[in-house]
Structure formats: structure tokens, C-alpha cells
């Protein structure tokens, strides 16, 4: 999304980037620090709120039992929705944020579908599977929203517990099996190790910067969004912006994303492990 800044400000930012300086003091390959809160929504099975610079997003995960898609009976389902609060940016007022939200939801959903173990979400083959609903809310747009959503989504999924399910088969062949839900606290975690984070790399002038802020985004001729998994594995990638990217810059952007992605994942996993340890210490 575009922050409302003047041409003079754009020039100032672009010239700064050309010399390797960014207006918030970062280097070209530095991401902004993450500030994460877990379990912020009591009604959800897992939730997280993330501040990255001025960007503020919230993700809630809800799971429900549904009958599987006829085409893929042995797979669970993942759905993502992104809602852009009209407080977040003047462009979101009315239905302004809708299309943007749909695009981001599609990006998140495809990243999750290819990285979550959908086979493990099956409760009763061909009859009942878990549907994971990821509800994302953009509270403030300070740039790099898609990246922030992906980090918050991974965090929220990591703290989600699938409730314990007990299946009682009916006596006869025609009887429907009975499904009993257990308590949330004794549920099983979902495997999220392969879930990627999305790293945005913007092309400003002849250089590229990672994790662009709201002021840098309108200065960029093009932005590439890479889904990066552990070890620098790449998932989906998309491009926004109306400019072309010089070929050598493309490979440089790819490399920058592959370096930053695992770093973010390590930071996130360290935090999640520490908070899980703290929670179990409190319980003991």
C-alpha cells in the first residue's frame, strides 16, 4: 500500500538508498525487529499479535471439523482471510482494502497449503477432517504487511493445539461414527516447521532493500515477495509494482531473501521455544 508522501520525500529516500542509508537507520539487508505477543484472543485455538516497526497485525487460528473436499478426501483444509481495518490506512476506507486483502489471503493460503502436513489433519478418512481457519487483521499498515502476517501466522499456528478427538465406531455398517471432542489443553500441536515466512525485497533505484517500510514502498519500482522456509528453501514468489527488475538485481534479491528468511525463522522459533518453556515453568 502507498503512504502519502511527496516527490521530494521520495527522492530523498531513493538517494539515501543509493548510498546504502535508509531513513530509519537500517542497512539495506536489515529487517525491522519483531515484537510478538502470543495467545491474545481467548476464543481462538491459537493467536498472535505482531508489531514490526509501525505495522501491527493480529492472527487468530480456529479449527473445526468438516467433511473433506470430494476431490481430496485424505487432506485437511486451510483457509486464510485478511481483513484490513479502515483505521489502518486511508486507502482501506469503505471497500478499499478488500482486493488487497484477498490477494494477501491467497498468498498466505497457498504458502500454508504447500507447507502444512494436510494429511495429518485427517480425523476419519474420507469423512471428517480438520479445517484450519486463519483470520488475519491488519490494524496498522506501516509497510511489509504481508511479511508480518506470515510471521504472525506461523506463530499463531505454532501455539495452536488440535483438540483431542475420540471416535467411536457405530455397531452396524450404516451407523455414523460418533466423534467426541476433548479439551483444548490436551490437544496435539500442528507441525509448523516447514511453514515459510514471506520476505519482501524492494527495488529502489538500482539497489534492493529488504522489509520496506511504508515510506519506502511507494519509492520502489517493483517489490518481490518470496516465501522462504527453513534452510532457505523457497516456496511461492510474487511480484508487485509496475517496474522491471534488472536481471543481476533479481538474483541479488533472491539471495537477500534466502539469507533473511532463515534468520527470521530462527528468531521466531527461539522466541516460541522460550515462551513455551516459560509457560510450562508457570504451570509446574
Amino acid at each position: 500500500m502507498q503512504a502519502d508522501i511527496s516527490d521530494a520525500e521520495k527522492l530523498y529516500i531513493a538517494q539515501g538508498v543509493a548510498q546504502g542509508v535508509r531513513n530509519d537507520g537500517r542497512g539495506c539487508h536489515d529487517a525491522r525487529p519483531l515484537e510478538l505477543e502470543l495467545g491474545v484472543v481467548a476464543q481462538a485455538n491459537g493467536s498472535a499479535r505482531l508489531h514490526v516497526g509501525a505495522t501491527d497485525v493480529m492472527v487468530g487460528v480456529k479449527v473445526s471439523l468438516v467433511s473433506p473436499d470430494a476431490a481430496e478426501p485424505a487432506k485437511g483444509q486451510v483457509f486464510a482471510t485478511v481483513e484490513c481495518s479502515s483505521c489502518a490506512s486511508p486507502e482501506f476506507k469503505g471497500r478499499g482494502g478488500e482486493d488487497w486483502g484477498i490477494d494477501m489471503a491467497a498468498a498466505l493460503q497457498s504458502a500454508l497449503q504447500s507447507s502444512l502436513d494436510l494429511g495429518s489433519l485427517v480425523v476419519l478418512a474420507g469423512k471428517t477432517v480438520w479445517a484450519v481457519h486463519l483470520d488475519c487483521l491488519v490494524l496498522n499498515d506501516g509497510g511489509g504487511v504481508l511479511g508480518a502476517l506470515s510471521v504472525a501466522a506461523r506463530a499463531a499456528l505454532a501455539v495452536t493445539r488440535l483438540p483431542k478427538v475420540e471416535v467411536t465406531m457405530g455397531e452396524g455398517d450404516d451407523d455414523e461414527p460418533e466423534i467426541e471432542l476433548g479439551d483444548d489443553s490436551e490437544g496435539t500441536p500442528m507441525g509448523v516447521t516447514r511453514v515459510p515466512v514471506i520476505v519482501s525485497v524492494a527495488q529502489i533505484g538500482s539497489r534492493c532493500v529488504v522489509d520496506p517500510s511504508a515510506e519506502e514502498e511507494p519509492c520502489a519500482s517493483a517489490v518481490l515477495h518470496f516465501a522462504v522456509g527453513p534452510g532457505g528453501r523457497l516456496g511461492a514468489a510474487t511480484k508487485t509494482g509496475a517496474g522491471g527488475i534488472p536481471q543481476p538485481a533479481l538474483l541479488e534479491m533472491l539471495e537477500a531473501a534466502q539469507q533473511l528468511g532463515p534468520k527470521v525463522l530462527r528468531e521466531l522459533d527461539g522466541f516460541l521455544a522460550a515462551s513455551a518453556a516459560a509457560a510450562s515453568a508457570r504451570a509446574a
Binding site: S110, S114, S115, L224, F226, G229, G231, G232, R233, L234, G235, A236, A237, T238, K239, G244, I245, P246, Q247, L250, Q258
Partner: peptide
């Protein structure tokens, strides 16, 4: 210059 890039699936580094 590259004008569009779309990747999907899973790619080794």
C-alpha cells in the same frame, strides 16, 4: 529486465 516472476510449490535453495 525482468517484468514478472511467479513461483509456486517448493524449491531447494
Amino acid at each position: 529486465e525482468v517484468t514478472q516472476l511467479q513461483m509456486s510449490g517448493d524449491w531447494a535453495p
